[in-house]
Simulated scan of single mutants.
Amino acid sequence: MISRLKKVLEQYEVDVTVKLVIITGEGKAFCSGGDIVRDAQLLLEGHWSVLVNMYKENLLLDYLAATYKKPLVMLIDGVVMGAGAGLSMNASFRVVTENTVLSSLFQPLF
């Protein structure tokens, strides 16, 4: 998901017909934290290199959002966790509804 979103954002950034990019979640959550569950599984299984590469890709996506040359709007409704929380915080504009619940891991998993 992260590499696909990064690729699309890079394409939109250079497309002259795109003036604004809006990202929203699917269903009842903006980002339900599936990445956190996957990270914990990889950690417990000892797959450090996979985890490091995933975090690298995630941070590159966050950097792209923070330096995006066009207005980047996040429509945040429902639960926002993990990578979605980091990504949304780096957007030009964040629209948060009364249904939004922010949850993030700020403590190390190891």
Rank of each mutant, 00 (worst) to 15 (best):
G46E: 04
S3W: 01
L102F: 14
F110S: 06
A40G: 00
T24P: 00
G82K: 05
K7L: 00
R38K: 12
A65I: 09
F30V: 01
N99D: 15
S32D: 09
S49K: 13
A66E: 04
Y68Q: 04
A85W: 15
D15R: 02
I36Y: 05
V52A: 08
D62A: 06
M1H: 15
Y55W: 02
V37A: 12
Y55G: 02
F110N: 11
R4F: 11
G34A: 09
V8E: 07
R4A: 09
Y12I: 04
D39E: 14
Q107S: 15
M74C: 15
V14R: 09
K56N: 08
V73F: 11
M54D: 11
E45L: 13
S103Y: 12
E13I: 03
A40C: 03
K19C: 08
Q41S: 01
A29Y: 03
L102N: 08
V8A: 09
Y63V: 10
Q107G: 14
V96K: 00
R4Q: 07
E13Y: 09
T24V: 01
E26Q: 03
F30D: 04
M74G: 07
G33W: 02
V73D: 04
P108R: 15
A66Y: 03
Q107H: 15
D77L: 14
A91L: 01
G86N: 07
